[in-house]
Amino acid sequence: MPSDNDFDLFSPPAAEDPFTVYDDIRGRCPVVHSENHGGYWIATSYQAVDDVAKNPELFSSVSISVPKNAFGDDLAERPPITLDPPRHAPFRRTLLPAFSPRQIRMLEPSVREHARELLAHMVGRDHCDAAAEYAKKIPSRFMARMIGCDDDRQDEFAERMRALLEANEMDEIQAAMAFTQPFLDELIEQRRRDPGDDLVSCVLSAEIDGRPLTGPELIGSLVLIITAGIDTTWSALGSSLWHLARHPEDRKRLVADPGLIPTAVEEFLRAFSPVQIARVVTRDTEFHGAQLAEGDSVLLGIPSANRDTEEFPGAGRVDIGREVNRHLAFGVGIHRCIGSSMARMEMRIALEEWLRAIPEFTLAPGDAVKWSTGHVWGPRRLDLILGSSEGQSS
C-alpha cells in the first residue's frame, strides 16, 4: 500500500517554502496514505486530484475535512459544498446572482478605495505586517459588504470572523461559533424582514429538496461562504506579497508593467494554492494504484497538483508571465469555487494598489513569516521592510 505515514496536514514540515512539502510525496505515488487523524488518503498528482473532483458518485462531498469531524457538529452541514448531485446544482444556482459579473463591477471601486485607505496608513513607515494589516483586511471588508453588513458594524463583523478563521482546536471552533452566531442570526432576521440582493438574502431564498434550509444548514452555508471568501483570498494575497518581497526581479517587472498583474495573479494562485479539502469514498475501489475502502477520506492535495511537472513545465519555478496555466486553485468539477472571479478581482486590485504605493519592499530578517496550517495555507504574519532594498539580500 502506498504510504506516507509522517505527513500531517495540520503540521507540515517547516520550510522556507511550505508549498514544496508535497514534492517528494508526489514523486513516489499519485495517491498516498497518512495515518494521522485517524488515517486519510492524499491525491497528490494533477490527474488524481482532477479525477477525484470530477467523480462525485465515487467521491462524495458529505464531509470535506480531515478528520471528518474537524469542524464539529455545528458546521457539519455547509451547503452547497457538502451537497452531492442532484441536490447540489439547484442550491448553487440560487447563489449565482450574488457572484455575477454585475456584482463584481459594482463592488470593484469599493475594493480599490479600501486598498488605498489601508496603504495610506503604511506609506512612509519602515515596516509593516502585510498579512494582518493588508491581506486580511481587503477580503474582510469586501465580504462584509457582500452580506449586507452595515458600515458601522463592519469592524464587529471582522472581529467575529477573525475568531472563526483563527480557531484550530475543536473547543476553539465551538467558542468561535458561540461568539459569531448571534451576529449572523441578527443579520438573517433583518434580511427575512427586508430582503435585498445581498448574499444573505440569496441563501435565505435557497432550497434543498424543495424545502427551506434548516437553521444549521443556513448558518453552515453562510459560515462556509464568508470564511472561504476571506481566508482563501487573505492567504493567496499574502503569499503573493511574500514572493514579491523575496524576488525583486518579479516585483520590479510588475511595477514597470502593471498590465502583467492579472497573469501574475494566476501564477501566484498556482504556485501558492491555499486550499485543500476532502471527499469520502462511497465504495471499495482501486484508484491510481491505491486500494480505497468505503468511508475513507481522500484529501485533494491541490497545492501538490499545481506543482506537478507532468502538467506544468518548470512547475517548481514561479513564472509571472506563464501564459498556459490550467491550475486547480479554485477547484474543478461541480464544486469549483463560485467566487473565483471575485477573488481574482480582489487580488488584482490589491496588488495594483500595493505596487503603486509601495514599489520597493523586502522580507524582514529573522522570523518574518508565520504560516497557517490545516485546510488553508497562507501567511498569518508577514513582516516586511518598506522602502529601498538596494544592497539587501533577498
Rank of each mutant, 00 (worst) to 15 (best):
E169N: 03
N168Q: 03
F183V: 05
A176W: 14
L165N: 14
M170V: 08
F183R: 02
M161Q: 03
R192H: 10
T180S: 14
N168R: 05
R192Y: 02
T180M: 11
A167F: 01
T180L: 08
L164I: 15
Q190Y: 08
M170N: 06
E156I: 08
A176C: 12
M161C: 15
I188W: 02
L165I: 15
M161Y: 05
D171H: 08
E166F: 07
Q190H: 01
L187Q: 12
E156P: 03
E172H: 06
A175D: 09
T180N: 13
E166P: 05
L184Q: 02
A167L: 07
L164Q: 09
E166N: 12
A176R: 10
L164W: 10
D185M: 10
M161E: 01
L164Y: 02
A163S: 11
Q174H: 13
M177K: 00
M177N: 00
F157W: 03
R160I: 07
D155N: 12
F183Y: 15
D171Y: 00
D171E: 12
F183W: 14
M161D: 03
R191M: 06
E172W: 01
E189R: 10
F157K: 06
M161L: 12
A163K: 11
D171I: 01
E156T: 13
L187P: 08
R160Y: 02
A178Q: 12
F179H: 15
E189I: 05
A167V: 04
E172V: 02
M177R: 10
L184I: 15
D155K: 04
P182L: 11
L164N: 08
L187D: 01
I173T: 06
D185S: 13
R160A: 05
D171S: 01
A175K: 11
E169Y: 10
M170S: 11
P182D: 10
